Amino acid sequence: MSIRQPVTVKFILTEQTKQQILAEQRRQIEQLTAELDQVELQGKQALEQAMAQGGPAAQEVRQQVEQARNQRLEQREQVIQQIQQIQQLELGTELQNMTVETMVDVNVGDDWSKVLMGAEIIIKDGIVHEIRRGGQPV
């Protein structure tokens, strides 16, 4: 019988990987900053229109703009914290990247605890470096 089983995908932090991650995070900060600028601009315009209509509409628009602004600021702060964490990590550190699924054959007589141990795929600079089952190389 075959069953589905999650497989953890990790990558080994190398200088190349570290620089790729940091570059992507810097792009995210630039994107969030651009979105923040756009929220500010559109919010200002929407607020002017709402104020022309009267009281409650303006307050509602102000709250929506503030909420969108705070959301972008919080996301940007999280990315900045991630950058700081990545910069502090030592090269060679294994970082979990994602989880994928695989099919595993289970037969009568198999040790169930070994089936449950799961598998890991270790990536180094974009290439599968190692496959492990239960923490042991396959």
Rank of each mutant, 00 (worst) to 15 (best):
residue 3 I to M: 11
residue 3 I to G: 05
residue 6 P to Q: 07
residue 8 T to W: 06
residue 12 I to Y: 04
residue 14 T to A: 01
residue 15 E to G: 10
residue 16 Q to P: 06
residue 17 T to M: 13
residue 18 K to D: 03
residue 19 Q to V: 05
residue 24 E to F: 12
residue 27 R to G: 09
residue 27 R to S: 11
residue 28 Q to E: 12
residue 30 E to K: 08
residue 31 Q to C: 00
residue 33 T to C: 00
residue 33 T to V: 03
residue 33 T to H: 09
residue 38 Q to F: 06
residue 38 Q to P: 07
residue 41 L to V: 10
residue 41 L to Q: 14
residue 43 G to H: 00
residue 48 E to I: 08
residue 48 E to R: 12
residue 49 Q to P: 03
residue 56 P to T: 12
residue 57 A to Y: 07
residue 60 E to F: 10
residue 62 R to L: 10
residue 65 V to D: 02
residue 67 Q to M: 09
residue 67 Q to F: 08
residue 68 A to F: 03
residue 69 R to Y: 07
residue 70 N to K: 13
residue 72 R to C: 08
residue 74 E to T: 15
residue 75 Q to I: 05
residue 75 Q to N: 05
residue 75 Q to P: 01
residue 75 Q to A: 12
residue 76 R to K: 12
residue 76 R to H: 00
residue 79 V to L: 00
residue 80 I to Y: 11
residue 83 I to E: 05
residue 83 I to L: 03
residue 84 Q to R: 12
residue 84 Q to T: 08
residue 85 Q to D: 12
residue 85 Q to F: 06
residue 85 Q to T: 11
residue 87 Q to M: 01
residue 91 L to G: 04
residue 93 T to H: 08
residue 93 T to V: 08
residue 94 E to R: 12
residue 94 E to P: 01
residue 97 N to T: 12
residue 98 M to E: 11
residue 99 T to E: 15
residue 99 T to V: 15
residue 102 T to W: 06
residue 103 M to V: 11
residue 103 M to F: 13
residue 104 V to D: 00
residue 104 V to F: 04
residue 106 V to L: 03
residue 106 V to R: 01
residue 108 V to Y: 11
residue 108 V to S: 09
residue 109 G to K: 06
residue 110 D to P: 07
residue 112 W to M: 15
residue 113 S to V: 07
residue 113 S to Q: 12
residue 116 L to I: 00
residue 120 E to M: 04
residue 121 I to G: 02
residue 122 I to E: 02
residue 122 I to C: 02
residue 123 I to H: 02
residue 123 I to R: 03
residue 125 D to C: 00
residue 126 G to F: 00
residue 132 R to M: 09
residue 133 R to N: 10
residue 135 G to E: 00
residue 135 G to R: 03
residue 136 Q to T: 14
residue 137 P to A: 11
residue 137 P to F: 07
residue 137 P to K: 10
residue 138 V to E: 13
residue 138 V to G: 01
